[in-house]
Structure formats: C-alpha cells, structure tokens
Simulated scan of single mutants.
Amino acid sequence: MKDRRLLRLSLVLVITLLLLLFLSFGLDLGFEGSDDRAVELILNTNPDYTPWLSNLWEPGSDFMEKLLFGLQVTLGLALGVYFYIKLKAVQDVSR
C-alpha cells in the first residue's frame, strides 16, 4: 500500500517538474527580474551611479537564462516535496 502511494506521488512529482521545465521554455510571460528593475530605478534616480561590483558570469542568451531559471524552480520544488514527504514519514512513524 505504501509503495503504491510513493509511486503515485513520485509520478505526480516527475510530471509536475517536467511541466514546469517545459513551461519555462515555451512561455514568455514577460516577467522581469528584480535586479533589472532595481538598476532601472537607480539609473532614473541617479544617472551618474556606478556599481561597486559586477557579475562573475552572465548567461549569453535568453534561452540559457530561461534554462537556468527553470532548473532553479525545478530543484526548489523537488527539495520542497522531498522534505514534505520526509516530514510526513516522521509524523506517520511517531503515531
């Protein structure tokens, strides 16, 4: 019984992760990062501003940026689901 439940949960997780990864490539929702907005606001407020630091590495294309963002979302969701399952398992054992 528990194996079937774990299998179903794993299947839902994999489908969700694949869907999120697919949507991160296929849709351009027009979201703008907070860094871009902050730079825009700072330059509007003080055009002579020069940043103290610069990026170590910046993706070369929008595709790479979307890929990295999609992987970050997928990893975050996977970790959240993993720790939720672990928490539920600990609670089930303690009962």
Results as ranks from 00 to 15, higher is better:
residue 19 L to H: 02
residue 80 G to Y: 10
residue 93 V to Y: 11
residue 18 L to F: 12
residue 40 E to N: 08
residue 66 K to F: 09
residue 41 L to F: 11
residue 15 I to Y: 13
residue 21 L to I: 07
residue 41 L to R: 00
residue 6 L to A: 14
residue 31 F to V: 04
residue 30 G to Q: 01
residue 44 N to Q: 13
residue 25 F to T: 06
residue 20 L to E: 14
residue 4 R to L: 08
residue 64 M to A: 09
residue 29 L to S: 06
residue 45 T to Q: 12
residue 39 V to M: 05
residue 86 K to R: 13
residue 85 I to L: 10
residue 36 D to W: 01
residue 23 L to V: 13
residue 29 L to H: 01
residue 45 T to C: 11
residue 20 L to G: 14
residue 73 V to E: 04
residue 4 R to A: 09
residue 24 S to H: 11
residue 25 F to S: 02
residue 80 G to P: 05
residue 48 D to K: 03
residue 65 E to T: 08
residue 46 N to C: 07
residue 94 S to E: 06
residue 3 D to E: 13
residue 13 L to D: 10
residue 43 L to D: 08
residue 44 N to G: 12
residue 91 Q to R: 04
residue 78 A to L: 15
residue 35 D to R: 14
residue 29 L to T: 08
residue 79 L to C: 10
residue 63 F to S: 12
residue 15 I to M: 15
residue 28 D to R: 08
residue 63 F to R: 11
residue 56 L to Q: 01
residue 83 F to Q: 08
residue 82 Y to T: 15
residue 82 Y to S: 13
residue 77 L to C: 13
residue 15 I to Q: 07
residue 7 L to F: 10
residue 69 F to M: 01
residue 19 L to Y: 12
residue 70 G to S: 03
residue 40 E to K: 06
residue 5 R to I: 07
residue 62 D to H: 01
residue 56 L to E: 02
residue 46 N to T: 10
residue 26 G to D: 03
residue 13 L to K: 11
residue 68 L to H: 04
residue 81 V to G: 02
residue 29 L to C: 07
residue 34 S to Q: 15
residue 57 W to C: 01
residue 84 Y to H: 09
residue 48 D to C: 01
residue 29 L to E: 00
residue 14 V to P: 00
residue 50 T to P: 06
residue 94 S to P: 00
residue 74 T to D: 05
residue 25 F to P: 03
residue 17 L to C: 03
residue 5 R to M: 11
residue 6 L to G: 02
residue 30 G to T: 09
residue 15 I to S: 13
residue 32 E to K: 07
residue 61 S to H: 05
residue 4 R to G: 02
residue 17 L to S: 01
residue 79 L to V: 09
residue 11 L to I: 13
residue 64 M to V: 07
residue 7 L to E: 15
residue 79 L to N: 07
residue 29 L to N: 08
residue 84 Y to N: 15
residue 95 R to M: 00
residue 61 S to P: 06
residue 3 D to Q: 12
residue 81 V to M: 13
residue 5 R to Y: 11
residue 44 N to K: 15
residue 8 R to L: 14
residue 51 P to S: 02
residue 36 D to R: 08
residue 12 V to E: 02
residue 14 V to W: 11
residue 79 L to P: 00
residue 13 L to P: 04
residue 7 L to I: 13
residue 23 L to M: 15
residue 16 T to R: 03
residue 39 V to R: 10
residue 24 S to L: 05
residue 7 L to G: 05
residue 38 A to C: 03
residue 6 L to W: 06
residue 78 A to Y: 14
residue 56 L to R: 00
residue 52 W to T: 13
residue 47 P to A: 08
residue 82 Y to H: 11
residue 81 V to A: 14
residue 80 G to W: 07
residue 37 R to I: 13
residue 68 L to E: 08
residue 67 L to I: 04
residue 40 E to W: 08
residue 11 L to W: 10
residue 64 M to C: 02
residue 48 D to Y: 07
residue 9 L to N: 05
residue 60 G to F: 09
residue 46 N to L: 05
residue 51 P to I: 09
residue 86 K to N: 07
residue 67 L to T: 04
residue 28 D to S: 11
residue 62 D to W: 01
residue 2 K to H: 14
residue 48 D to G: 01
residue 31 F to G: 04
residue 87 L to I: 15
residue 24 S to D: 14
residue 27 L to G: 04
residue 54 S to A: 04
residue 10 S to Q: 05
residue 70 G to T: 02
residue 66 K to C: 05
residue 58 E to A: 13
residue 27 L to I: 11
residue 46 N to A: 07
residue 89 A to C: 06
residue 62 D to T: 05
residue 72 Q to E: 00
residue 49 Y to N: 01
residue 54 S to Y: 04
residue 68 L to K: 04
